[in-house]
Write a protein that binds this DNA or RNA. Sequence first.
DNA 1: AAATATTATGTGCATATGCACATAATAGAT
DNA 2: ATCTATTATGTGCATATGCACATAATATTT
Lengths: 164, 164
Amino acid sequence: MTSAKSTDVQPTGDPLEPVSCGPLPCTGGRLRKLTRRMTSFYEQHLRAIGLKLSQYSVLMNLSTEPQTLLQLADRLEMDRTTLTRSLKPLVDQGWVAEVAGDDARRRLLVLTASGHRFRKQAQQVWCDAQLALETQLGRDFTADLNAQLDRALSQLKPALPEEN
Amino acid sequence: MTSAKSTDVQPTGDPLEPVSCGPLPCTGGRLRKLTRRMTSFYEQHLRAIGLKLSQYSVLMNLSTEPQTLLQLADRLEMDRTTLTRSLKPLVDQGWVAEVAGDDARRRLLVLTASGHRFRKQAQQVWCDAQLALETQLGRDFTADLNAQLDRALSQLKPALPEEN
DNA sequence: AAATATTATGTGCATATGCACATAATAGAT
DNA sequence: ATCTATTATGTGCATATGCACATAATATTT
């Protein structure tokens, strides 16, 4: 062993290099577990109208204005290709349509008339689910949780794709 | 307008039937978004050893003792059938093996020797990721977030499957 | 105008998620 | 011993997630 002066009494761990890592809880694991339960909770309600939670968020985010795939993906912060496939059942149901944009590359996604009607209905159901959730978790706790999630989102920015 | 006395100034909403539901934030949506980012964060680290976060949690939860599929699914609180398929790449890699139990129905899942070695390596990498996360979010905030997630988990119990 | 870069999108692959349905083995009831 | 219920698991389907690769159209450079 090297000599240890009184200012050097922690030979096994530099406090800035915080110990070896036994008891650290996995934040990601917790989050994934809670997300499974939470999604299940919402979808118990949404099942009545045959909608997934992710589809609901697509309908809501399309309800204000037509957007291209990339714009919508950015807004939802979903992978572009995930969104492509999530849209398919909505297009098949006739709730979302693709119209040509001024640029032949991009197609604008728009809510159809029946899409707007369905979105209203879905919003009612979602609202019931959200209220049920807040009843179960408690108003104040839900608000706190939302705030924590927002704060985490603002501090954990998405990784930039590597430049190739 | 109808007359309003000083004790009756909220004609549009019964406070116990909390208004119509315009501005409620979607807790589930936030959670899903954060989970995507968080998973991505961990997997940027885990990619070095070609492991998904969910696979890591399987390895960790198998490291103490052999279990049947159902036991492991309960512990991880994952859908049984999701776990079946998550295990396949781990079995293919030779990290997990299935051995016959005393009952011909159940097979015990066990970590192989190389599985144990790999799990140790994976734990190092995971630990780096967790520390990086805590650095980015702040120690105290991460601890708070973990606590909030735990509390939400304890209050939002999984739905019981319907009796048929 | 031609070559090159960027933009917008699609498809294939691997895994994640959970529901519905199917099967095999054991346990319990008659 | 046989019928029935329960337990443990698998498979098919639909969607979610994101990476790698491919293509078409527009923009930029030379």
